[in-house]
Structure formats: C-alpha cells, structure tokens
C-alpha cells in the first residue's frame, strides 16, 4: 500500500555511521555523487561500488530496507539502461530493425545501472542513519553563510523537518481518504490514464483541506510550546566533529583519490 515507503525513514540502530557528524555526512554525500559520475572505467566503478557496500554493512540496517528503496526506482533503472544499451556508438554486435547493440552500448548500460543503484543505496544510507532533525540541523548550519544575503535559513530548515515529520502522517491520511471514497463507490483502478487522473481529484481535495487544517493545528501547538523563530534557540543534541569524522573524511578522500588515479592511468571504457 501507499504506506510501504522506506525512503526518508530513520532507523536508530546506533552504528558508527549514526555517530558521524551529520554536516560531514552531507558534504561527503555530495562529494560521492560527483565522484560516481566521474568513474570512466571498471576499476574506478568497482572502487565506488565497494565503498557503497561498505557503507551499507557499517549501517547495521537490514538489507531488506535497502531492497525496498531500490524497488521504487526499478523501472527508472531498467528504462535508462535500455536507452543506453541501444544508443551506443561503434561496431554493432547485433542488429534488428532500428535496434543496434554495440559493445560501447553494453558498457554504458552497465555503468548507468551501477551508478544509479549506488546513488540510491547511498542516499538511503544517509537518511536511514541520520534523524530528520539532525539532517535539517546540519543543513541549517551548512547554509548559515547565506544569512548574509538575508536568506531565511532557520525557517527553511524548520519547514523541511516538519515536512519530513508529516510524510507518514499524510500518507496514512491519503490511505484513509482513498478507502472512504472507495466505500462510496469511487473507481480508481479502471479506465484510461485521463480517467484515473480525474479519479484522483476527490482524493486530493480532502487531502489538501485537511493538510491546511493540520498546519493550523501544528502552528498552534508550536506556539503553545513557546516557539518564536530561530533566535535564541538551543539544541539538545550538539553536533561536533570528532576523530571518527576525520577518519571518514580520510576514507572519502582515499576513494576520490583512487577514482582520479584510475581515470588518469587506465584508458576510459566509456
């Protein structure tokens, strides 16, 4: 059902990754995204994939949840790899009508598949091991320099954390509304695409109305708890860099270095 979404969830398994500074984790994640698209041969691709697997093992979270998050993007992976498979250049290995498979195409398909899978696994790993509050707290701190240009850093971070908090609640609500509309005879499973999209309207309208009511309630509750914006707020969980963060930085640097060296020394496969 709709509720069966593991992306964006947090699992408090207290692993080494949980104890890393969330700011460091975000920065390392950004570096990781850049580097995974800079892998041009199998050795460097292997290095990044190995590091990804190491993250997953270190997170102490059941592989079941990683598979779940992969399931959601399965179609995208298949589609992009097929596109790449048929759009390679060079001598065709196999040809039928307009479809042409080349060695280059196969390489491309493998690269794009591994890259996307690694990307999803790594981002799941980040959200699984970092609580939403930590994540937004880190983003707030990383964006602090933007305050100079009057960017509302605290407000944006607060909005993000509230949005993350209410994802499961709103999903549950969508489920309830769908069931209520079905009970009144709404048909959401048959008909063509346009019909199905139209069938969503009686779900979206009550969902929006209740979301706005909810927002009003949440604001009241926040005011009741003395919320008055970011000024003068303190945090229960202090984040600071420790030795293990520097070890993590060193490992990330090692991965980046390895990929760059491989790219220089070995010829590019794609």
């Amino acid at each position: 059902m709709v509720r069966d979404v593991s992306f964006g969830q947090y699992f408090p398994t207290k692993s080494v990754l949980h104890r890393l500074d969330p700011r460091g984790k975000i920065l390392m994640f950004i570096a990781y995204i850049v580097i995974i698209f800079c892998t041009f041969n199998y050795v460097s691709l292997g290095i990044t994939a190995a590091f990804t697997l190491a993250f997953l093992v270190l997170s102490k979270i059941s592989p079941k949840f990683y598979f779940k998050s992969l399931k959601v993007i399965l179609i995208i992976v298949i589609l992009t790899s097929l596109l790449n498979l048929f759009y390679g250049s060079g001598e065709p290995l196999w040809q039928w009508w307009i479809f042409r498979i080349t060695l280059n195409g196969i390489h491309r398909a493998v690269f794009v598949t591994v890259r996307i899978i690694c990307l999803i696994l790594a981002s799941s790993c980040l959200t699984f091991t970092t609580s939403p509050t930590e994540l937004t707290d880190a983003i707030e701190r990383l964006m602090k320099p933007l305050k100079v240009v009057h960017f509302p850093v605290h407000e944006v971070a607060m909005m993000m954390s509230l949005a993350l908090r209410f994802v499961p609640t709103l999903l549950e609500e969508t489920d309830k509304i769908m069931q209520a509309q079905k009970a009144r005879g709404a048909d959401m499973e048959s008909g063509n695409l346009i019909k199905r999209v139209k069938a969503l309207v009686p779900i979206l309208i009550p969902l929006f109305v209740s979301a706005f009511r909810r927002a009003y309630d949440v604001a009241t509750a926040m005011e009741c708890r003395c919320y008055r914006g970011g000024a003068g707020r303190t945090r229960m969980k202090q984040i600071h860099l420790s030795a293990r963060d520097f070890i993590a930085f060193a490992l990330t640097a090692l991965m980046i270095g390895g990929v760059i060296v491989c790219n220089i020394l070995l010829t590019a496969t794609i």
Partner: peptide
C-alpha cells in the same frame, strides 16, 4: 498527531526547552 513536531520522540519533547534557550 498535530502536536508532535519532530520525527523522534525525544527530539519532540526537547522542542519546548530548545525554544526557551535552555542549555543542552
């Protein structure tokens, strides 16, 4: 549901004192 503002129970309970600027 509408009174809990954080994704973890203890972080939600901390929301009030954090607003008041209490020491960690």
């Amino acid at each position: 549901d509408n009174q809990l503002v954080a994704g973890i129970v203890e972080e939600d309970v901390a929301f009030g004192p954090e607003n008041l600027g209490v020491a960690p």
